[in-house]
Amino acid sequence: MMKTTPAAIVFGLCAFTTVNAADIDGQWARGDGNAKVRIAPCGSDICATNTWIKPGTPKEKAGDRLVMTINPDADGGYAGTAFDPQRNLTYKLTVTINGDKMTTKGCVVAGLLCKGVDWTRIN
Protein backbone atom coordinates (compact mmCIF):
# COMPACT_ATOMS: atom_id res chain seq x y z
CA MET A 1 0.00 0.00 0.00
CA MET A 2 1.41 3.37 -1.04
CA LYS A 3 1.36 6.29 1.40
CA THR A 4 0.31 9.69 0.08
CA THR A 5 2.03 12.69 1.65
CA PRO A 6 0.29 16.08 2.03
CA ALA A 7 2.77 17.57 -0.46
CA ALA A 8 1.81 14.95 -3.05
CA ILE A 9 -1.88 15.71 -2.53
CA VAL A 10 -1.34 19.47 -2.92
CA PHE A 11 0.84 18.97 -6.00
CA GLY A 12 -1.74 16.65 -7.51
CA LEU A 13 -4.56 19.12 -6.91
CA CYS A 14 -2.54 21.98 -8.39
CA ALA A 15 -1.65 19.92 -11.45
CA PHE A 16 -5.29 18.84 -11.89
CA THR A 17 -6.55 22.43 -11.65
CA THR A 18 -3.90 23.77 -14.00
CA VAL A 19 -4.70 21.14 -16.62
CA ASN A 20 -8.41 22.00 -16.49
CA ALA A 21 -7.98 25.79 -16.66
CA ALA A 22 -8.55 27.20 -20.13
CA ASP A 23 -5.55 28.72 -21.90
CA ILE A 24 -5.52 32.47 -21.29
CA ASP A 25 -2.31 33.24 -23.21
CA GLY A 26 -2.61 34.82 -26.63
CA GLN A 27 -4.10 37.73 -28.54
CA TRP A 28 -7.60 38.95 -27.63
CA ALA A 29 -9.94 41.59 -29.13
CA ARG A 30 -12.27 43.49 -26.79
CA GLY A 31 -15.98 43.11 -27.58
CA ASP A 32 -16.52 46.83 -28.19
CA GLY A 33 -13.85 46.81 -30.93
CA ASN A 34 -11.77 49.50 -29.20
CA ALA A 35 -8.78 47.43 -28.07
CA LYS A 36 -6.60 44.39 -28.66
CA VAL A 37 -4.36 42.87 -26.00
CA ARG A 38 -1.66 40.24 -25.74
CA ILE A 39 -1.88 38.10 -22.59
CA ALA A 40 1.36 36.40 -21.58
CA PRO A 41 3.45 35.55 -18.52
CA CYS A 42 5.47 38.44 -17.07
CA GLY A 43 7.65 37.31 -14.19
CA SER A 44 5.52 35.36 -11.72
CA ASP A 45 2.34 37.11 -12.92
CA ILE A 46 0.37 37.33 -16.16
CA CYS A 47 0.19 40.61 -18.09
CA ALA A 48 -2.40 41.92 -20.52
CA THR A 49 -0.67 44.50 -22.69
CA ASN A 50 -2.56 46.74 -25.11
CA THR A 51 -1.24 46.06 -28.61
CA TRP A 52 -3.77 48.26 -30.43
CA ILE A 53 -6.23 50.97 -29.33
CA LYS A 54 -8.85 52.45 -31.63
CA PRO A 55 -7.93 56.09 -32.36
CA GLY A 56 -9.90 58.49 -30.17
CA THR A 57 -10.40 55.98 -27.33
CA PRO A 58 -9.92 58.07 -24.17
CA LYS A 59 -7.56 57.12 -21.33
CA GLU A 60 -6.00 54.13 -23.13
CA LYS A 61 -2.93 53.71 -25.29
CA ALA A 62 -0.90 50.93 -26.86
CA GLY A 63 1.63 49.59 -24.36
CA ASP A 64 -0.59 50.07 -21.29
CA ARG A 65 -0.37 46.96 -19.13
CA LEU A 66 -2.58 45.21 -16.58
CA VAL A 67 -0.62 42.95 -14.19
CA MET A 68 -2.74 39.97 -13.11
CA THR A 69 -2.01 37.80 -10.10
CA ILE A 70 -4.49 35.03 -10.88
CA ASN A 71 -4.79 31.31 -10.32
CA PRO A 72 -6.96 28.65 -11.90
CA ASP A 73 -10.27 28.21 -10.07
CA ALA A 74 -12.54 25.19 -9.65
CA ASP A 75 -14.73 26.23 -12.61
CA GLY A 76 -11.91 26.14 -15.19
CA GLY A 77 -11.44 29.92 -15.16
CA TYR A 78 -9.16 32.17 -13.14
CA ALA A 79 -9.54 34.34 -10.06
CA GLY A 80 -7.31 36.78 -8.21
CA THR A 81 -6.34 40.42 -8.53
CA ALA A 82 -5.22 42.77 -11.28
CA PHE A 83 -3.15 45.91 -10.86
CA ASP A 84 -3.52 48.78 -13.34
CA PRO A 85 -0.33 50.89 -12.97
CA GLN A 86 -1.68 53.62 -15.29
CA ARG A 87 -4.56 54.33 -12.86
CA ASN A 88 -2.90 52.98 -9.69
CA LEU A 89 -5.91 50.72 -9.06
CA THR A 90 -6.15 47.11 -7.93
CA TYR A 91 -9.19 45.08 -8.97
CA LYS A 92 -10.61 41.80 -7.75
CA LEU A 93 -10.65 39.82 -11.01
CA THR A 94 -12.40 36.75 -12.39
CA VAL A 95 -11.78 35.39 -15.87
CA THR A 96 -14.06 32.91 -17.63
CA ILE A 97 -12.94 31.29 -20.89
CA ASN A 98 -15.15 29.22 -23.15
CA GLY A 99 -13.36 28.22 -26.35
CA ASP A 100 -12.35 31.44 -28.14
CA LYS A 101 -14.52 33.64 -25.90
CA MET A 102 -13.38 35.23 -22.65
CA THR A 103 -15.18 37.37 -20.08
CA THR A 104 -13.27 39.39 -17.53
CA LYS A 105 -14.97 40.88 -14.48
CA GLY A 106 -13.15 43.43 -12.38
CA CYS A 107 -14.42 44.88 -9.11
CA VAL A 108 -13.21 47.76 -6.92
CA VAL A 109 -14.45 49.36 -3.69
CA ALA A 110 -14.85 46.08 -1.79
CA GLY A 111 -16.67 44.52 -4.75
CA LEU A 112 -19.35 47.22 -4.96
CA LEU A 113 -18.35 48.54 -8.39
CA CYS A 114 -17.89 45.81 -11.01
CA LYS A 115 -17.59 45.77 -14.77
CA GLY A 116 -17.56 42.82 -17.15
CA VAL A 117 -15.84 42.87 -20.53
CA ASP A 118 -16.20 40.31 -23.33
CA TRP A 119 -13.24 39.29 -25.50
CA THR A 120 -12.66 37.11 -28.58
CA ARG A 121 -9.42 35.25 -29.24
CA ILE A 122 -7.53 36.42 -32.33
CA ASN A 123 -5.91 33.48 -34.13
Rank of each mutant, 00 (worst) to 15 (best):
D25S: 03
D25C: 01
G26A: 03
Q27K: 04
Q27R: 09
Q27L: 06
Q27F: 05
W28L: 07
W28N: 12
A29H: 14
A29W: 01
A29N: 11
R30S: 07
R30D: 03
R30Y: 01
R30C: 01
G31R: 13
G31K: 09
G31V: 04
G33W: 07
N34T: 12
N34D: 15
A35G: 15
K36A: 12
K36W: 02
K36Y: 10
V37D: 03
V37I: 15
R38S: 11
R38D: 04
R38F: 02
I39E: 09
A40K: 14
P41T: 10
P41R: 10
P41V: 02
S44L: 00
S44M: 02
D45E: 07
I46N: 04
C47L: 11
A48P: 11
A48C: 03
A48E: 12
T49V: 15
N50V: 10
T51D: 14
T51H: 04
W52L: 12
W52R: 06
W52T: 06
I53S: 05
I53C: 07
K54W: 05
K54S: 13
P55G: 11
T57Y: 12
T57R: 01
P58R: 08
P58L: 06
K59E: 07
K59F: 09
E60R: 12
K61P: 04
K61A: 13
K61C: 06
A62V: 09
A62N: 02
A62F: 01
A62H: 01
G63E: 14
G63K: 09
D64K: 10
D64G: 00
D64A: 04
D64Y: 14
D64I: 01
R65T: 14
R65N: 00
R65M: 03
L66Q: 10
L66D: 11
L66N: 14
L66K: 13
M68T: 01
M68V: 03
M68A: 14
M68E: 09
M68N: 07
M68G: 10
T69W: 01
I70F: 00
N71R: 04
P72D: 05
P72L: 12
P72T: 08
D73K: 02
D73V: 03
D73L: 08
D75A: 03
G76A: 06
G76L: 07
G76Q: 04
G77N: 06
Y78H: 09
Y78M: 01
A79R: 14
A79D: 11
G80R: 00
G80V: 02
T81M: 01
T81V: 08
A82K: 07
A82T: 12
A82H: 04
F83N: 15
F83Y: 14
F83L: 12
D84T: 08
P85S: 08
P85A: 08
Q86C: 11
Q86F: 05
R87E: 15
N88V: 12
L89D: 08
L89K: 02
L89Y: 06
T90G: 08
T90M: 09
Y91C: 04
Y91G: 00
K92E: 15
L93P: 05
L93D: 01
L93V: 06
T94M: 02
T94N: 15
T94G: 02
T94K: 11
V95S: 09
